[in-house]
Design a protein around this nucleic acid. Structure first.
Lengths: 123, 123
DNA sequence: AGTAGTGTCATAGCAAGCTAGTACACCAGA
DNA sequence: TCTGGTGTACTAGCTTGCTATGACACTACT
């Protein structure tokens, strides 16, 4: 995995895992890779991985079982809320950033549509 | 000005100035506040301000005149390109982030429209 | 009981970002 | 010529993020 500079790695790992979860690659109840395994896979230190997981554990999205591992919560409601929250954060950020660039709200959809048409084959 | 944690202040200042410029609050050719003035206004150190300005100077968006101050370029083409670039970066980021959250491209506009309707009076 | 895999914690060291303070170089205007 | 405002540069010190390393505690399995 590649990390952007200028933003803490542990936050990027957290974001990465959140997306794995809300997309379903890490379904509810599954055990995620161990901290040591993640550290190797992400070419990062164990402590950095743990720092990422602690916040997710505090948020209840991950259940930590000492000696066993970390598991994705089975609370489907929480999962749904989390996904919606991530979407809302992204939408809020986008609209705010565009506003600061001088784009009027009623032009947002138009600009996005135009952008998508010009980048049909991206990803 | 408030700064987000987890992202270098000098980058936020740079972004802030870029937006002042592309929005026209700092028109082409105008002198921007001095580094010391900006440092006070932004409650930040002079060195941090300078670091932000250096990059903008290198990009040609700012013209630095030693002993006089920093001036917004009068190159209208460059200004237009810069604004378009900032918009494209934001659009690219948004579509990419939404993709990583599992949103299909053909649902993007719909979701955005829905979001805007739910937040009519925001800003 | 022993072993392997797990999460957790503590220490030390390094780099980056930010601050405070000082000093220097340049320019315009009185 | 002098003064005030400007950009620039340097040092020292602090904090945060990350790493490397080692140690401990818990669980499941044999």
């Amino acid at each position: 995995m590649e990390f952007k500079d200028n933003i803490p790695i542990y936050l990027q790992i957290e974001q990465y895992l959140y997306r794995q979860i809300v997309q379903g690659q890490l379904p509810a109840g599954t055990k995620i890779p161990s901290v040591r395994r993640l550290a190797v896979d992400l070419t990062v230190n164990v402590n950095t991985v743990q720092r990422a997981l602690q916040q997710m554990n505090a948020n209840g999205i991950l259940i930590t079982k000492r000696g066993e591992g970390n598991f994705v919560t089975e609370d489907e409601v929480l999962l749904a809320k989390t996904k919606q929250h991530l979407l809302d954060m992204e939408l809020q950020r986008f609209t705010e950033q565009m506003r600061q660039l001088g784009v009027k709200r009623n032009h947002l959809v138009e600009i996005l549509t135009h952008y998508l048409e010009e980048h049909i084959d991206d990803r």
